[in-house]
Write a protein that binds this DNA or RNA. Structure first.
Lengths: 181, 181
DNA sequence: AGGCGTAATTAACCCGGGTTAAGTGCGATG
DNA sequence: CATCGCACTTAACCCGGGTTAATTACGCCT
């Protein structure tokens, strides 16, 4: 089964806070399985602005599809928000395992289907929800599993700037700590 | 191989302009392979607003991942923009073919990986690009394959309203036909 | 030909988010 | 303890997109 391949050919990596698993532009052909911790996958704009694509929590898998399947470079990077442990496996290893063993193939299909499902949902949120609605959804579904995210990161995840997030929080009465003169 | 399963268990559907392949809320467990024509996959908001998720051209496959894998309902619908021909195959058929035959499994993996790659790109565009940038990208990459799309549909694909699209087009000097008094 | 319905454009106004800058609180560091 | 830096908040202003409504153009139907 696939677990055996992952155990044999994969290796555990420990990421300190702020450490990059890989950065935008890299040629990483690895798939990473998050075992513990918290990481963020993000795009870095030419102007230095960061947009967070995915908040990664244990149980999730990540890899740049374009880098994996088109011999391209990673269109985004992954950085640890908390100390994290991930298992890195070359995508080619998964593919060859799937090419030789039926049950491994099923598991790869499951992983890809799960990835597609998550992306489908994210696409819906970005396309159909307002920033405020996305924040409320974030509070309900992501925040419980990522309590250590900064407001900056939350804003980058929602696709807005920190001041915009602050305004939304203010409207909901969840700020008001510093009393600006 | 998978083609045989698709030929045997799938069936061709012909969609007239405006016809729905399936609508939001359906329990469709089919995957559709576009053979000819042009279709759109879209979310319908409670207020009746349409947001187009994907423009479907020949060679692409579509299906609601949440409906396929979580026994849920389709989160979006698919409608023909031009007269189209699609081949419908139950997802369960693909899965069982992939469970019995290694080469079929590889093909299913290819289909899912391609889907994930497309979604990854779309996610990037929605998260990082402005409406204007998305329109320019649309002109370069989608328009050539979908010349019959209305401005309404283009706007819905970009996530904006027709007036907003008109303003963008005006800025680029690509309008000016009707001279509004 | 005349009339209707719809798509596309434009205008006017509003609102939400971006930008910039300033102020506040807090933790790390010396 | 004092200072520095950074995250967070707020304010002021601008700009782009939403909303609504009016106008034009065009296809379709009778």
């Amino acid at each position: 089964m696939l677990d055996a391949i992952i155990s044999e050919h994969g290796r555990d990596l420990t990421c300190a806070v702020g450490e990059n698993l890989f950065v935008q532009g890299d040629r990483s052909d690895f798939v990473y399985f998050v075992k513990a911790g918290l990481l963020k996958a993000s795009y870095l704009g030419a102007d230095g602005r960061e947009q967070i694509k995915t908040i990664l929590t244990p149980g999730m898998a990540i890899g740049s599809m374009t880098a994996l399947t088109s011999d391209g470079r990673c269109s985004f990077g992954v950085q640890a928000v908390e100390e994290s442990i991930v298992r890195a496996v070359p995508y080619s290893m998964l593919r060859s395992a799937a090419a030789e063993d039926l049950s491994s193939a099923q598991e790869v299909i499951e992983i890809l289907a799960d990835l597609a499902r998550r992306k489908e949902r994210r696409e819906y949120e970005l396309l159909c929800l307002s920033a405020e609605e996305r924040y409320l959804l974030y509070l309900k579904e992501v925040a419980p599993r990522a309590p250590s995210l900064s407001q900056m990161d939350i804003a980058a995840y929602l696709g807005i700037t920190p001041p915009a997030l602050s305004r939304i929080r203010r409207r909901h009465g969840m700020t008001q700590q510093p009393k600006h003169e």
